[in-house]
Every structure is written in structure tokens, then in C-alpha cells.
Amino acid sequence: MGELVVDKHVKYILSVEKRKDSFESVVLEHLRMNGAYWGLATLDLLGKLDALDSNEVIEWIMKCQHESGGFAGNIGHDPHMLYTLSAVQVLALFDKLNVLDADKVANYISGLQNEDGSFSGDEWGEVDSRFSYLAICCLSILHCLDKINMEKAVNYIASCKNVDGGFGCTPGGESHAGQIFCCVGALAITGSLHHVDKDLLGWWLCERQVKSGGLNGRPEKLPDVCYSWWVLSSLIMIDRVHWINKDKLVKFILNCQDTENGGISDRPEDAVDVYHTYFGVAGLSLLEYPGLKAIDPAHALPVDVVNRIFFQK
């Protein structure tokens, strides 16, 4: 079995930003903020965050903030909860949360809570349990959870639970590992995991492991490295991670590396991208792969960063 090619992944991450020569790389500029989080969180887990000029990144992030307090995916774009959490997470990585007006960001988020406790992603009103996670995680990092109606927020998430123990986008929506991570993560942060049927959900989650050792996100789907994060972090939060075969999963992730040029893909032999590189490394971190920083399964930030946020105030 190969090992994690740390230096090559660092090189790959640093090179991604400079690549402006293909349609595929340019066309995703509207979510550059997410890209920044995936790339920088990977560097931090690999212990190489200092390979990059933080001032430049922070300056750019602050240019993406709107009057409303929310952040856009890039300069000149509209704000959305998706990018607001990524912006706050990146600032947390650099220990620069102090450049933020926390109240302003928190007001943006609390302004998006609806009467039934759910959250809209932005002013246009789409509702999704994912947005509940984004709101709760972000407010938790900013120490502002008191700005929302927590009881209603939790009850809404609980209403997205299905007969199979999983969670969907809205009440009655199909269970999906990504949605499950969001709902379990939000419930974990708010201390409401009693809403989860742990054995039932754990059962569904561990059935995501397929023969190759990889995890899929829904029944009958192919395994994909990003689910190493969504499924694994959920299993850890509900204390059922021993229900899957960890060694086989480590092997699967390592097999998805581009050992020549760095980066990790969704499946062996596919093209690499930052998104899967982050989720691969984050998954290995959850699996306690040697040499990696530990990651917090609910906040999706390195444990030392989370400790700094909560115990150094």
C-alpha cells in the first residue's frame, strides 16, 4: 500500500490557484470562497499552512463581504450562507477572527432564520437543512448562538428525519450522507444528539461501505472519496465508527491519490480536484492517519483551531 504523498499534495494545492487556462477551472470562480476553505484546511491538516501569505488571503476575503454582513463566493458576487461559513472558517484557520465584526455576520445569519426554525441560504428564500448547519456552525465559531431561536432550529432539523434514521434536505426528502452530516453536525454543536436514533442511523451509514472499502452517499451509488468525510464524521459524532472497516477505507483513499502530481480524486484513476483532496485528507485525519492534525467532526476545522476558539477566550 502506498503512503500519503504529503509534499505533492501541498504543491498541488498551491498550484491550483494559478491555473486559469482551462474552462473547468475558471467556470468555478463563483465558489472560490469554498475552494479557499478546502485548500487551506487541507494545508493546515498537513501542517503546511505557512506555505502561503495569509494577509493576501484575508484581504481578499474581506473584499467579498457585503453590507448585509454575509460573504460572497468571490468579489462582486452575491452573498450566501455557503460562502459565509467558509470565510469564517478560513479566518479561524489563520487565527484572524478578530478582523470580523462578529455581530454583523451573526445578524446576517440570524436574519435568515424562518418562522418554522429553518434557515434560508440567502435572501431569495431557498430552505435546506444544510443551511441550518451552516448557520449553527458559523454562529458557534463566532460565539453568537444566542442570536437565533435554537429550540425551533433544532426541531426543524429533527423534522427532516426519515424512517431509515437518515436526514433529507427538507421534511420528507431522501436521506443523503451529505445532508446527514449537516443535520448530525448541527445537532452535535447544539447538544441535541438525542434527536438521532444512533443505532438506526449508524446502520444506514455503515451500509454505505462497499466492497472496495470506499463509502458511497446513498444506496446503489459508487464509492466516492468525499463521502469518507460525510459518512465518517457522522459515525464518529454518533459513536458508531467501529461499525465500518477503517483499514479498507484508508486504503481506498490512498488509492485515489495522484502520486505523481499530487491531489486526490473521487475514485481511483479519476482526475483530481481540491474538493476531493480536502475530503480525502480530512477523512484520513478522522481515521487517525499518522502525521496529520486531528480534525473536529462537527466544525470541520482542525482540533487545535477549535480549541483555540473555545478555550482561549
Binding site: H30, L31, A72, G73, H77, H80, W124
Partner: peptide, 10 residues
Amino acid sequence: LSCDFGTAWN
């Protein structure tokens, strides 16, 4: 060309 360009939908 870029189906998830949120600002354009907005």
C-alpha cells in the same frame, strides 16, 4: 455556460 452562477440567477 455556468449553471450554478448564483448571482446571475439572483
